[in-house]
Design a binder for these strands. Structure first.
Length: 400
DNA sequence: TGTTGAATCCCAC
DNA sequence: CTAACGGTGGGATTCAACA
């Protein structure tokens, strides 16, 4: 038998499925978004216009997750778009994980819609791992109303690759002996950790499939992809992965907040207010987790999509809005070329444990003193859309 | 020679 | 005809400064 049995559970078209279930079950809508070309997408009027999830019928029009909504509408003019509801997705994600937890405590949530499960012990009493996976798949569908793919293998990498095989609502295995038949014929961009840059390099070497990578000399891969990355891709192509399912989540290494502005920003006064908004979010998250940061980075994207960062290391750790904001302003002043800004971001790293803070009378008084500032911030949020959680209204801006 | 910090690049979801 | 274009977080690489 195998040393380990790992499942990878992946919700099919997560945001769209969850949206469809909610609209059907809670709002009582008769139309099921999953049966028509539809997608969850951002607010075009705020320049957050990308596809976040698409239905299976939309997939037939070659609509890709992450692509601009305008491009998707060109491919399918009748595409039904709905705005995202992240609170709903968090709830759905939790429901799924609660259900999975009944099968094993050894769960590693990998993203809002994916999880690894170490099922090595949990398969006892079942005919096969496949049998258990099918049962979980059915139960999620019956109790939660959406479908999942489950990949089964002896490590996380292979389980993940397996869950990506035919969708939706399916269980697949990819055991080591199945690698040549099931994984090696796939186009190399489907290998985990082969992104845009790596696939270009690999195609340049004349490779097309994952199997082509597997047959390559490790040192050639390292020379062209870098030492670590080359080794990683080589290992992945061979199905080698010894990493364990981590059921306890590791602490964050950084906290950041960035936003694409609904209009380009051309002056410091506005930019600094947006930096205040971003700094406030970041610092309150630091405080909520009892952390302080020693490194602050400001990130900008200009109107031509040029991306730049500028960072500084502080003399002592902080988690106050003020220090983070002042530092961010100083950084922006030091490196902004003056080109109109499309995106602004604040990121904090080099974290240390701080003290948990509580809102006290002083904080409340301070808040009152800042009433005028808050009004200015609200004004900026309205004009530049930094308050991303607000209702999405891009349907209004649709030209008839 | 090795280390550190800053900037950039790459990747996943 | 092309362009259109999020947010968050982890990690590696490169380069310069420096010990």
């Amino acid at each position: 038998m195998y040393k380990r049995i790992i499942f990878h559970v992946d919700v099919n078209s997560a945001f769209l499925s969850w949206e469809a279930v909610y609209r059907k079950e809670v709002l009582g809508e008769t139309l099921d978004l999953r049966t028509i070309p539809s997608a969850v997408g951002g607010d075009i009027s705020k320049r957050h216009g990308i596809i976040l999830a698409k239905s299976t019928p939309a997939k037939k029009y070659n609509i890709q997750t992450g692509e601009p909504i305008l491009k998707a509408l060109q491919k399918c003019p009748d595409l039904v778009l709905v705005p995202p509801n992240h609170d709903l997705y968090e709830q759905c994600s939790k429901s799924l994980k609660d259900l999975l937890f009944r099968y094993t405590p050894c769960i590693e949530p990998f993203s809002i819609d994916e999880a690894f499960l170490d099922m090595t012990g949990a398969c006892n009493g079942y005919k096969s791992p496949n049998d258990l996976a099918e049962q979980i798949r059915e139960r999620v569908k019956k109790e939660l109303g959406f479908t999942v793919n489950i990949g089964i293998s002896t490590n996380k990498l292979l389980a993940k690759m397996a869950s990506d095989f035919r969708k939706p609502d399916m269980v697949h295995t990819l055991y080591p002996e199945e690698i040549p038949a099931k994984m090696w014929p796939l186009p190399l961009e489907e290998l985990y950790f082969v992104g845009k840059a790596s696939s270009k390099v690999l195609h340049g070497l004349g490779l097309e499939t994952i199997g082509d990578i597997a047959k390559m000399d490790l040192n050639i891969l390292k020379a062209h992809l870098g030492n670590k990355h080359g080794q990683m891709i080589y290992n992945n192509s061979q199905g080698i992965d010894e990493s364990v399912v981590e059921s306890t989540s590791a602490a964050n290494k950084g906290y950041g907040n960035s936003t694409t502005l609904s209009q380009d920003v051309i002056d410091f006064e506005t930019a600094n207010l947006i930096l205040l908004d971003l700094s406030e979010t970041v610092s309150s998250r630091l405080r909520a987790d009892g952390m302080k940061c020693t490194c602050i980075t400001v990130e900008v994207t200009d109107c031509d999509f040029n991306h730049q960062t500028h960072q500084t290391t502080l003399l002592s750790p902080t988690n106050t809005t003020n220090v983070i904001h002042q530092t961010a302003c100083k950084l922006l002043k030091e490196f902004w070329s003056g080109a109109p800004l499309r995106l602004l971001g604040v990121r904090t790293t080099k974290l240390t444990k701080g003290e948990f803070t509580q809102l006290n009378l002083f904080d409340l008084l301070k808040d009152e003193r800042h009433e005028k500032l808050d009004k200015a911030l609200d004004n900026i949020r309205n004009r530049f859309g930094t308050d991303a959680i607000k209702r999405a209204s891009f349907m209004d801006s649709d030209k008839d």
